[in-house]
Structures are given as structure tokens and as C-alpha cells.
Amino acid sequence: MQSNNPVFRRSEEFSRSGANAYGNQTYAGNGANYQGYGSDPSTWGTGEPGSVETPARSGAPMTIDSVVQKTGISIGVVIVAAMATWILTPEITPASNADDLSPLIAALTIGSLGAFALSMVNSFKRVISPGLVIGFALLEGVALGALSKLFNVQFGEGVVQGAVIGTFAAFAGTLAAYKILNIKVGAKFRTFVVAAMFGMVALSLMELVLSMFGQSIGLFGFGGLGMLTAIAGLVLGVFMLILDFDFVEQGVANQIPERESWRAAFAMTVSLVWIYTNLLRLLAIFSQD
């Protein structure tokens, strides 16, 4: 089964198996040519009559443990980079002027743009690169550290703490619901989530461009419209996690190469950051007098 998620679609491995995680018959590669056939007959298998042949895989397969380890590394880099940015940037107060805020604004801008660029590269790169995943996590951490510090001063300390706790609670709750309720992910659900995700990104870019000309619709502000988009973004983040869990489950069942653990780690890091930023904004709106 082929994914509509650009992160996983770049990996042919997620489409490869004799039977998918739900027991439905699929065919290796969906007609794609695999490296190894036609190059070294010794790697061919004789198989059984009526069976579907797949090329020999080198290295250990991806496991739940390997996904947990790589995701832990990626999230750990985000947290360390965020803490370092918070500590190393100058202290600010609600009365701080533009000069005092400039280091934080610079960190937020550089981190956000760099993380966005690497997220696009990682999403559409055919062979996942651990270095680029770590680079994305590092830049994302810098952006989140700066953003969190600004929100902490403007809206109070409880906002950041609540967003952190809420993000991990959302992860745990979504995982529990996925397993206990035995959630099945269909093609229409995938298409909807990915379309909504790119739609939200497009709206963010539109707001960014408008802000350069001193204009704003308020989609990502702290008013009523901003609250609606924050709630929608939070729900979308949970849906993205469901897609991540589904693809990890299929990948483990298909015994894809261990290196794909980094792709799964990247996807879950994106989903958790997405949930955190929307939850942070939502709590900031609620905290206003």
C-alpha cells in the first residue's frame, strides 16, 4: 500500500511486503524494479509456485526498539537545543525593547526557516539521511526555545509548562487510543490529513508574506480566528501521529531496513512539534485577561 504522506512516500520500503499489516495481499514494489535483479543471479531466490519474490535485504530490519531509540535521539536534540537557546539568549521582561528582543527574534527566524527547509528536504528525499534529521531537530529546537521564551514572558510561566505536559499527554493518549481501539487508517483519511497539513502550511506562509507588508488576517493571532486555527492545528497534529503509528506498524511488519527508523523518527518529531506549537498558542489565548 502506497502512502499519501510525503515523508513515507519517498521510501519504497513502506510499500513492500507480501501482506500488509492488516492482512491484505500486496505485491512487492507495486511493479517497481528493485536493485539486485539482473545484476547478480546469486541473489535471486527460487521461491515456491505462485509466490511473490522479493530481493534479499541487507542489514537488520526496523523494529519498534529502533524507532523508539531514533525518535528519542531526535526529540532529545530538540529539547537540548531549546534549553540552550533559552539559557544562552539574554533575559527579557515585558518591558524589554526591540534591541533586547533582537537575539531571540534572530534565533526564532533562523531556526524556523532552517527547520522548514530541512523538513522539505527530509520529506522528499528518497534515501533518509540521519544527519539531516538531526540537523532539522537542532534548528527546530533553536526556534522552539526562542518562541517558548517569548511566550513565557508575555503570557506567564504556566503556558510553556502546560504545552510541554500537554504534548507528551497527547502522544501517550493517541498511542493508547491507536492500540486499544485498533484504529485502521484508510486512503481517504491519509489524503485528508496530508491535504490539511499542506493547507495549514500554505496559510502560514500567506500570513508571513502579508506580515512583511504590515498586513494580517489573524489566522495565527490570539483572537477568535486564531483560536479556531489553533484547535484545528492541534486536532490535525493528533491525526498526523495516527499516520505515523500506522506507518511504523506497517514498516515493522514488512521488515523494512533499520535505517528507515530515522524516517519514522523525523515524522514523529514533526508531529510532536506541530502539536506543541498549536497547544502553546491555544494556552496563550486562554491565559489572556
Rank of each mutant, 00 (worst) to 15 (best):
G76Q: 12
Q255F: 05
V77D: 09
R259L: 07
G199R: 00
Y34W: 07
Q35P: 06
K149Q: 14
G29F: 02
P103R: 05
K188H: 11
G251H: 01
L210I: 09
T43Q: 12
S123H: 11
A84T: 05
N30A: 11
L104D: 11
G199M: 07
L283E: 13
S51H: 07
I183E: 10
Q288K: 11
T167M: 06
G221E: 04
L175I: 11
P257Q: 06
A137L: 01
I165N: 13
G29A: 06
G162Y: 08
I105H: 08
T26A: 06
W44K: 15
F213C: 02
I64N: 13
Y37D: 11
M240N: 08
A56L: 09
N24M: 08
F220Q: 02
G237K: 01
V160W: 01
V194P: 01
N122Q: 09
G173D: 12
Q2L: 09
T26E: 13
Q215K: 10
I128L: 00
G156C: 02
L225W: 15
G59Y: 02
E140M: 08
E207Y: 03
F189D: 15
Q154H: 07
S119Y: 10
Q35D: 06
V235W: 03
L225C: 09
G31F: 07
P41Y: 05
W274V: 13
L228Y: 11
G50K: 10
L272Y: 03
G29V: 01
S39K: 10
S261N: 06
F8P: 00
S204Q: 10
G166L: 04
N254C: 05
L243Y: 00
T46Q: 10
R190I: 13
F151H: 15
E53D: 14
Q255M: 07
S15T: 09
I64C: 12
T167L: 03
N182F: 08
